[in-house]
Design a protein around this nucleic acid. Structure first.
Lengths: 218, 218
DNA sequence: CCCCTTCATTTGGTATACCATATTAATGAA
DNA sequence: TTCATTAATATGGTATACCAAATGAAGGGG
């Protein structure tokens, strides 16, 4: 149960995103500005703004005079998500390989180190967060501002999906290993190569996600 | 000069977007909620919301306690935009080719017809709008909800860029011709082929845009 | 003359109230 | 009972007011 005391500090958006992520607010559920405002103890204004942001990020859909509805992440949509992601991760890796700096590489390396620590400690939530940050950082370092914005949306969606099926399997370690390979490829400066590694990595992640979805829920 | 009377009807976002597009509000210019509210005759609330949306779409950047600043579309950024667009248009075309319906094809064909009419009438603004709608429709028909959302952002940015250098050259006709080729490719059902046509089309559009940018302004 | 402190102004954020419109419920007539 | 009309309610949108925080300017001390 998420504390509703002084939500202001963290922003209503964070509160709602986490509430949806953790399942406190379930897919398909309808939300209203007034209802949420009362529930979390703030006025309509910040709630309204948060809902708009959720809408922009594709987490809720708005139907006039009915309220907003939390999306349901179907298998089909996850496949669509990874279709887009594969291309964009590939582009990011290629561009970054062609313009990589020692600082950028070490920034990514640091994130991998952190991920490794969280992985052995079995902190799945933290691990997921750092994983997301890794890919966002990659997009940012690629130098393409659009990639950064888009990847942010995709990672937001992935964050929702992941919490449903948190992988405690051997995937985290393989994931980290793939990230290391990706960094090496980027450091090599070979754009084509880095792109292929990145795309391969996304395809693996996709397979894993799809498998989790089809066997577990849905 | 855009009329400010009863902006409510069209929404503040549209007003601001057009004001920026037409150059009434110039790149680099700083905007404030209160200033805009007074200028266009509405309260801060809808202005605030519109600004947030502009921010999400990457049209303005917000610096705390300084106001929001209208972005400057550099040549580099436009190149980044087309890098992303090429991949995604390719994906959209491929997916649509693999699931095309007669209704979808005729919807696209209708838009091309309209574009042709506006082209011969030399209505450059209308032509640009329909052109944008063509690509948005393509993304929507591809069945990938993420493509649709992303393409919307990209087209919004392109809309800004186009108004700076409105092409009265022979490009419109070539553009329409390429769209026709794309539809044929999609109708053939050959995903690979449709993808290559779409990517080629984007590369041409990119060349044209870059040329206009480097010779004209910047 | 310069720097530091203080205060006014500007901006950001939130709360509350009001009105329009759409949906839903209630009521009444066929 | 069923349908149409009307009334109540919920939602969306906007306006206004208030408070906090940050910036920039003014004034005082070194």
């Amino acid at each position: 149960m998420i504390e509703m005391t002084d939500v202001k500090k963290n922003s209503v958006y964070e509160y709602l995103y986490n509430a949806i992520r953790t399942g406190e607010i379930k897919p398909g559920q309808t939300l209203t500005e007034r209802g949420l405002a009362e529930k979390i103890g703030v006025s309509r204004t910040p709630v309204r703004e948060a809902i708009r942001k959720l809408e922009e990020q594709g987490i809720v859909t708005h139907e006039p005079h009915k309220g907003v509805k939390v999306i349901t992440l179907s298998v089909g949509k996850v496949a669509q998500l990874y279709d887009v992601r594969e291309l964009l991760e590939g582009l990011a890796a290629r561009k970054l390989a062609e313009r990589h700096t020692p600082e950028g590489i070490s920034e990514l390396a640091r994130l991998i180190d952190k991920a490794e620590q969280e992985a052995v400690a079995n902190h799945v939530h933290e691990l997921a967060r750092i994983n997301s940050e890794f890919h966002l950082t990659l997009a940012r370092l690629s130098g393409n501002v659009y990639l950064e914005a888009i990847m942010n949306m995709l990672q937001t969606q992935i964050g929702l999906m992941m919490s449903a099926s948190l992988s405690t399997s051997g995937r985290p370690l393989q994931n980290i290993s793939e990230h290391k390979m990706l960094i090496d490829a980027i450091r090599s400066g070979d754009g084509e190569f880095a792109e292929s590694i990145a795309k391969h990595h996304v395809r693996n992640a996709r397979e894993h996600a799809m498998q989790k979805l089809t066997e577990g829920g849905e």
